[in-house]
Amino acid sequence: MKLKGWKELPIGGIVIEPGNSREVETGTWRIARPVVDPQKCTDCLICWVFCPDDSIPSNGKVRFETELYHCKGCGICAVECPYKAIEMVQEADVIMEELKLTSK
């Protein structure tokens, strides 16, 4: 997200648009991310119910990929999943994997 400069902000730090918490990238707070095993996931949507950050998009039938811009990595979805289909993977490991891929 591009951060706004001081001239773009309303006087007094007031929030003038509703729902603008959508713009705040809370994904940077995460130290572990939920990784779904598609073989185990049944689209029961229990994770969608429990996600406190509304980061699991769904059309009511299918679980779409976790929305990592907002996911804080709390791990509630992994705990609640009745099929143990969600594994919390350390962000550090993700970064190491990415580094290995780019250094090849």
């Binding site: 951060l3 706004k4 001081w6 902000l9 006087i11 007031i14 929030v15």
Partner: peptide
Amino acid sequence: NPVTYGATALPDYYTELKYP
């Protein structure tokens, strides 16, 4: 035109809300 007074501004915005 509803507005929010008193929202949090974390390290990424606090400075920009002090400067004005």
